[in-house]
């Protein structure tokens, strides 16, 4: 390995770190929009893994999966933000602790 190339594992480690940050944001934040953005961060981390493995195997399939993940993420963002709008309209709050109708 010459110094002009980056080990593949570095990309995977970066992906893991970003995914962990997304999980942390998902678990610890209380603002529903920030929680939603943490999910997007996790999706991006997984995309990086897909593209890195695609490079490793010299095949384009990983790119196609990433493309589909992007499409699903766009659909998910549209529906999720519509749900957030509805929640805010009905409850006038964005704190996930205050939305607990289905608790108990």
């Amino acid at each position: 390995m010459t110094m002009t190339s980056v080990p593949l594992s570095w990309y995977l480690i970066l992906s893991a770190v970003l995914f962990t940050l997304g999980v942390a944001g998902f678990l610890f934040r209380r603002n529903i929009i920030t929680v939603f953005m943490s999910i997007e961060l996790m999706l991006n981390a997984v995309n990086l893994s897909f593209v890195a493995f695609s490079y490793q195997w010299r095949q384009v399939d990983g790119h196609v999966y990433t493309f589909f993940v992007m499409v699903v993420a766009a659909a998910e963002a549209a529906v999720g933000l519509a749900i957030i709008l509805t929640v805010f309209k009905n409850r006038a709050t964005l704190q996930i602790d205050d939305v607990d109708s289905m608790k108990n």
Partner: peptide, 16 residues
Amino acid sequence: ALPKPAGVTFGAFTGG
């Protein structure tokens, strides 16, 4: 643990 594959070099994969 992982076997050492060749590193990632820019321009080595042009199938994207």
